[in-house]
Design a protein around this nucleic acid. Structure first.
Lengths: 227, 227
DNA sequence: CTAAAATTTTAGACGTGTCTAAAAAATAGT
DNA sequence: ACTATTTTTTAGACACGTCTAAAATTTTAG
């Protein structure tokens, strides 16, 4: 998939990225309202942008029927995601930012236009496969390395053990909470008990015991040991 | 001088930067047409922007009288210059770009908004004092280190010796020419002869002899040996 | 000193991306 | 099946940064 030279505005790129993110997590056709909420804007603005991006052949969109990315649109989304995650690695590994501080800056850096820059940055960082939150980094062709098994802590059974492979990167507050309890990528975890009345979990982590609400557990992903 | 949090658009920043650059090299009041040429835009567009930036108290401007930066405007210009040059050092020192390749990318990176990022980048790079073309990098307060003596090769007399401290960074072609003749910052240079009829110079550099036109000589800056 | 030339500003327009308010279509409830 | 409600789109507006064409001002030159 060849990316066209015709470049997009930051706004257009942000829409493409949001549509990509939503189609990964939710169903495959994205509603106007969902996108409006995600972009913190109004549905009417979304409709306008949807038309424009459809004209550019980056979206499949029919009135009242929601939208989805074309292969070309998906390729652009992946290149933005790639840049975002590589810059996050740079900020954390090289500039000593915390994983809770990098999102906002990476939101700006992801729009820098230079494939050569992206590829050299990747080499400089030693071809990282995941960003500081454990999210995978696609290669220059938009392909992810064989992703490690990653399941939500909330979906694991009592007695499961595993290694933390990823965390939700959506909120600095959540990441700061994880800092406070010293949970990192690579931490070893065991589910001691699941409390059925509120869905919370008792967790053993490096000789300490912690209680996670269901909401927290759903935002932490582990690679379970086969046992 | 405290930079206000109120952030400028990239367009506004580019105007500020261009006005700063022009007021460094030329007279202290910048004409509308000069700025229009520099920005590759029309005089009418410049007038509009001048009004806007004057309203924001970044410019002194009176109809038909040209413009100049206020202290606040100058502080913003210096912060942009600082970011531009630090990113150029990053691209050359860390990502192995050539000094002829970095300008365009730095033009984008200079608009990234994060003082913390800039300062950490500076530390990561080892507090460089000049960019890859020898241009000085101001500190976080907009102050330049005591700049080394830098005179244009064209203004030196026959017999002068010195070390190349800077080159004009305006055109990739010029920088590629310098690559070809293997002229770098730090190269030792002696003026063997100045040819009066066309202003060109015969130069000795590391055991080789090279002829520079006046135009080229005017774009190379040396620190002369006191002798 | 005044007329011609150059520069600069104003007026009105356009494309982008956003908004509000109103209309149209789809969905849900009875 | 037919309203009522929700979702989505359209219509019209605005701020931004740009443009062209015309008017105003300054500069130059005779």
């Amino acid at each position: 998939m060849q990316l066209e030279k015709r470049q997009l505005s930051q706004s257009e790129e942000n829409y493409i990225k949001a549509i990509y993110a939503l189609s990964e997590t939710c169903e495959d056709t994205i509603s106007t309202n969902l996108l409006a909420e995600r972009m913190s804007t109004k549905a009417s603005s979304v409709t306008d942008m949807l038309k424009k991006l459809t004209d550019k052949e980056l979206l499949t969109y029919q009135k009242y029927q929601g939208c989805g990315l074309t292969p070309k649109g998906r390729a652009i989304a992946l290149s933005i995601v790639r840049k975002h995650r590589l810059w996050e690695v740079f900020l954390v590994d090289k500039l000593q930012f915390g994983w809770d501080e990098v999102h906002e800056i990476a939101e700006q850096l992801e729009h820098i236009q230079s494939t050569q820059l992206t590829n050299r940055l990747e080499a400089f960082l030693g071809y990282p496969k995941v960003d500081p939150h454990g999210d995978p980094i696609p290669n220059d062709e938009g392909v992810f390395d064989t992703p490690a098994v990653r399941v939500s802590l909330a979906s694991c059974e009592t007695g499961s053990k595993g290694i933390v492979m990823g965390v939700d990167d959506g909120s600095p507050e959540f990441l700061q909470y994880l800092n406070k309890i010293d949970l990192k990528l690579g931490s070893e975890i065991e589910i001691l008990e699941k409390l059925s009345f509120d869905g919370s979990l008792l967790i053993a982590m490096e000789k300490r015991t912690i209680q996670f609400s269901h909401v927290v557990a759903a935002r932490i992903f582990i690679q379970p040991y086969q046992s």
